[in-house]
């Protein structure tokens, strides 16, 4: 009876967006009288932090502080169209739409500021802290608040912008499968270390060492959240979960969390991850979608580590203790101790 250790590797890519029928999302932006900006969407935040990242992108492009931006979503009476939050598309699609809308609004904002300052708008820059000034002359400037007030009450301008991102429809060629379904690819590599108990068949994931390429980590804390959550989901898929334990037999489906097995907090492996960035040419500030990908590479890495540990190749998910034990029995039948 022994606890056998093993190491396994897996590497994956993951598409950002997946288009069959055209994949658009829209954004509208307007300034309030007092220089806050409202981004109006019909997009959904699943808990991954879409509202946060979209506000960061709007603030970056407008050149104003993050806390001057409000996200107004999701009401179909007011929010322009969004396909939805899936296919790792949210940051990419909606981010691009917001950049387009923010550029239009920024242009109006700078034109009003130029009129107020009696300078050329092309000479103006934003400091990201709420002021607009002549490039190289920080004293020759005006606050965004005053620009917004002047636009509304003096000049009759709307500081606003409209944005859309569309990945056009790509119809696969039936004979060859030629198609252009996605916008870019994110990448991941996981090295898993596991311990297999050869008496019980129980697998413990000791450590996951990961490399992730995400285009640009727009908000490293949110990327961290995806990475840890995804790794947990990967461990869970690899070793625990199914709604049909005897698939394709339909019986014994779990009905609640006492029957549907998942790892608890104590089962989460030690994680050591590194992010690298190769900005996507078509991504907002180079961002790619990483939401889905983070769950994928741990699964085969764990399967490969189990083989490395005990010589059992389990080719069906989930890799339950029963499958590991049956594999060990089969090995012993071939090579009796």
């Amino acid at each position: 009876m022994a606890k056998l250790k093993g190491r396994g590797v897996a590497a994956v890519n993951y598409p950002t967006g997946m288009n069959l029928g055209g994949d658009p999302s829209q954004a509208l932006i307007h300034a309030t009288t007092t220089g806050s900006f409202v981004v109006t969407l019909s997009s959904v935040d699943l808990g991954q932090g879409l509202k946060t990242v979209i506000a960061q992108i709007a603030a970056e492009t407008l050149g104003i502080p993050y806390d001057s931006v409000m996200i107004d979503t999701a009401d179909t009476d007011t929010g322009p169209h969004c396909m939805g939050t899936f296919a790792s598309r949210g940051t990419h699609r909606i981010g691009n739409a917001v950049i387009m809308a923010a550029r239009e609004a920024r242009e109006v904002m700078l034109n009003v500021a130029a009129t107020e300052l009696e300078v050329d708008a092309a000479d103006l820059v934003t400091d990201g802290k709420g002021r607009i000034h002549v490039n190289g002359a920080p004293d020759k400037g005006i606050g965004v608040l005053d620009v917004a007030l002047a636009a509304h009450f003096k000049h009759g301008n709307t500081i606003s912008g409209r944005g859309i991102f569309l990945k056009p429809k790509s119809t696969p060629v039936p004979e060859t499968g030629e198609m252009d379904p996605d916008s870019c690819q994110a990448h991941a590599c996981t090295i898993a270390e596991v311990e297999v108990d050869d008496e019980t068949g129980v697998v413990r994931v000791l450590k996951l060492t990961n490399g992730y390429e995400v285009g640009r980590a727009m908000n490293p804390a949110l990327a961290h959240q995806q990475i840890v959550g995804g790794a947990w989901m990967g461990i869970s898929h690899a070793l625990y979960e199914t709604t049909e334990p005897y698939y394709p037999d339909r019986a014994h489906g779990p009905l609640d969390f006492s029957e549907y097995l998942m790892p608890g907090p104590a089962d989460l492996a030690e994680m050591e991850s590194v992010i690298i960035e190769r900005p996507a040419s078509n991504g907002p500030y180079g961002a790619k979608g990483i939401g889905e990908m983070t769950a994928n590479s741990p699964i085969p890495a764990i399967a490969n580590a189990i083989f490395d540990a005990c010589g059992v190749r389990v080719t069906s998910l989930p890799i339950t203790p029963e499958k590991v034990l049956r594999g060990l029995d089969a090995l012993q039948a071939v090579n009796p101790v």
């Binding site: 946060t52 506000a55 960061q56 970056e60 908000n219 490293p220 804390a221 959240q225």
Partner: peptide, 10 residues
């Protein structure tokens, strides 16, 4: 703001 760990809005 891009690239900074702003606290999640929600």
């Amino acid at each position: 703001t891009v690239g900074t760990s702003t606290e999640r809005a929600d």
